[in-house]
Amino acid sequence: MAEKTKISLTVNGNAVEAEIEPRTLLIHFLREHLNLTGAHIGCETSHCGACTVDLDGRSVKSCTVFAVQANGGELLTVEGMAAGGELHPLQQAFVDQHGLQCGYCTPGMLVRAYRLLQETPNPTDDEIRWGLSGNLCRCTGYQNIVKAVRQAADELGQKEAAE
């Protein structure tokens, strides 16, 4: 067993320090070490996106990133999306538009959609589909997910306009 490495990072705004084996995958670090079980493991080969988290402003598949690579980084998971207990407009929109069924892909979808809207605040349906193409869902047929992201984009746009 290789020597453990010390890492420190910010997760959902909280400072975290840990000693881990270098081979520890980020998804296992989150789920096993930090008990943040929102992100899920779906395929293990970086195809399904269920493990998506936001690392330093990028959506990444945490099954294919080592936790040591997040050292010094800033991480957002689905658990950090509701600020001060208030749902993010994306979360509410997924409920409103029936954008989830079994819920297993949902955390990854939400975190990925969050970054998509940061980069493309007013996406077309086509841009939403391309933007979410790294996240697989078996239940919804995607249509209501696209609608949900559209709703959230509209709402965030209105909020911005009001400010």
């Binding site: 789920r31 943040l36 079980t37 929102g38 992100a39 899920h40 493991i41 998971t77 689905v78 658990e79 999306m81 509701a82 749902l87 979360q91 509410q92 997924f94 409920v95 409103d96 029936h98 989830l100 819920g103 297993y104 949902t106 955390p107 939400l110």
Partner: peptide
Amino acid sequence: KRKEDARFIRGQGNYVDD
């Protein structure tokens, strides 16, 4: 609207690996 969504959208579902 679905009752179960409240936990899923917060990452608070309780699947077997959790």
